[in-house]
């Protein structure tokens, strides 16, 4: 048995993050850490150390699917690990992310009013007003929180579904952050080997 490190417990942080979103949506902002840390790590070190060590979500899936046995442990279908699907999903994710940023901008600019919903799987608008208790700043700050939490919840739900159907950490195969950091490593490696 390998010795456990502090970073083997980051699944607790991931779980707490998801729970906090049910109490105060503004905590969603903390999720930006899961965007910036992997990017910074891959850009500076040229490694996927975030995926390899620190990803709390991956740990959560491996705990639920592995230790708790909530996974069929089947092989992921070939198309899901193809470059076309992985890059396609990354682009789709990006587009949806920028749409979310655009909506946030519209609220900041007073063109649209704050919509207190969390959109699951880019489709289902779940009422989420109970987790909103006002903000000290512009309502746009809250709009970003609702939008960002939607992104995080959607990807967790997708990850849970593929965890049950396939291997516990099958989310890692098509995780947009993972694909992006691998692309950064590829780019860094091809420029440094020249």
């Amino acid at each position: 048995m390998k010795r456990k490190h502090w970073y083997d417990y980051l699944w607790i942080v991931s779980a707490v993050y998801l729970i906090l979103g049910f109490f105060n949506i503004l905590f969603a902002w903390l999720g930006l850490l899961c965007f910036f840390i992997p990017l910074i790590l891959s850009l500076t070190t040229g490694q996927k150390s975030y995926c390899n060590r620190y990803c709390g979500r991956g740990q959560l899936f491996s705990l639920l699917g592995g230790r708790f046995g909530l996974s069929r442990r089947h092989d992921i279908p070939g198309w899901m690990k193809s470059k076309v699907f992985r890059y396609g999903f990354l682009v789709f994710f990006f587009v949806m992310f920028f749409l979310m940023l655009w909506n946030t901008y519209l609220v900041f600019a007073d063109v649209k009013s704050l919509s207190q919903v969390v959109t699951l799987l880019w489709t289902f608008r779940l009422p989420w007003h109970w987790a909103y208790h006002g903000t000290l700043f512009s309502p746009g700050v809250a709009q970003f929180a609702f939008g960002f939490y939607s992104v995080m919840l959607t990807s967790t739900v997708l990850g849970l579904v593929t965890m049950v159907l396939f291997k516990p950490r099958s989310w890692c195969v098509y995780c947009p952050m993972g694909t992006m950091t691998q692309l950064i490593c590829k780019a860094k490696n091809s420029t440094s080997s020249k």
Partner: peptide, 24 residues
């Protein structure tokens, strides 16, 4: 060619026989 470099194999290997090379 299809490895996603997630590092699940590294974590599970009791002999530390696997490494992720350059995040690739």
């Amino acid at each position: 060619a299809v490895c996603v470099a997630c590092g699940c194999c590294v974590k599970v290997c009791s002999l530390s026989a696997i490494q992720i090379l350059h995040g690739l």
